[in-house]
Write a protein that binds this DNA or RNA. Sequence first.
DNA 1: CTGGGCGTATCGAGCGCTCGCTAGACTCGG
DNA 2: CCGAGTCTAGCGAGCGCTCGATACGCCCAG
Lengths: 208, 208
Amino acid sequence: MVADLRPDGHTDWRAYEPVRLPPILAASLDAFDEHGYHGTTVRDIARRVGVTVPALYYHYQNKQALLVELLLGSMNAVLGRCRSAVEEAGPDPVERFGALVECIVLYMANRAPMAFLDTETRSLEPDNRARYIAMRDELEALVQTSVRDAVARGDFTTPYPVDAGRAVLTMAQAVANWYRPYGRLTPQEIAGRYVEIALAAVGHRTKD
Amino acid sequence: MVADLRPDGHTDWRAYEPVRLPPILAASLDAFDEHGYHGTTVRDIARRVGVTVPALYYHYQNKQALLVELLLGSMNAVLGRCRSAVEEAGPDPVERFGALVECIVLYMANRAPMAFLDTETRSLEPDNRARYIAMRDELEALVQTSVRDAVARGDFTTPYPVDAGRAVLTMAQAVANWYRPYGRLTPQEIAGRYVEIALAAVGHRTKD
DNA sequence: CTGGGCGTATCGAGCGCTCGCTAGACTCGG
DNA sequence: CCGAGTCTAGCGAGCGCTCGATACGCCCAG
């Protein structure tokens, strides 16, 4: 089951171990990222793993199951980390917002290949897509709630909380599209900068 | 040729007529957006148009040519509009930045199905992809130049011009992923708000 | 200590189908 | 009567997936 897939059995939402996936899932991830779901053949996946096609079908029901495992597992992982992040941040909505941006950017960078798969959502069959979107909506709700609460307290001055919240969420998610591990900044550095940029975008009153 | 595709023969970069595409391209666009390039069959496109498969091949060389026409045409259109926008904005980098954000968001909303196709870039064959990426890079350069110049003048106070520039560009492009024509805001309203949000993100000194 | 039975994981071979694409004939307005 | 545009028919390749067989390690009865 998807719930059992733990791409990272994290305790700290900031900590990232090298990703450990079953070989077949790892190969599927690479192939889906390179060619997309429909552009990937089960023969290609088998070739990458170094086995024959029937071996794949021994471990997974079908091609769709591979995508489900990866996509639902990824969304579950980022959502779990974000829940930890807001909890750890405490009641202050500004702290929560900052923790969320940091958490999302960290995930998008440290798990870029996983997060990049998000574009394959449309290849999920309806039931699976519904479960995926429900989790995605919960993630957006976490962000929007923190923005709304911070605006209500007068900590954020943006006149467009919903639009600014969505803008911040999308720009954080987009990190997965351009991040390269050999880039000029570490994931932690990018996350730190994005927190500042995001706080500016929502019109955070600086205390000094 | 791609250069001949004029999805909109605009004179004003803010003006959008209903999109007028040859029926085969319009059907291809719908199909590619729904199922992706590899998930779309030429039979599906033919069915949407109401012709048989050979009729498609009379008008276009192959399936790839349909994607090339749409993707290159779209990128060419947004890039052309953005060039007009910076030119019209004059020499002030803040004005240029604002015009660019407005222009990009307007395109992403008014041409959301076209812009959404961006995710199919990886299905372009190498030569076509290279041409596409060259245009995309030029678009990013327009934004980054305006940010750098505005920071040099002290009009933007962001300590991370490159990162903030990319953040703004990605959040503007992401509009194509969530915009719906029956939504609560018009494209022009969204663009206006995004200009404000983007200016805040880069730390624009307000004059008052 | 042994050997038969069983679960796990793999294989070669190939089924039924759909894919992108095309040869060649037909239709019909100018 | 020509040629632009469409059709019917179908080719060769590759698709997702499955069948029956097999190699191997483990457990336990004799």
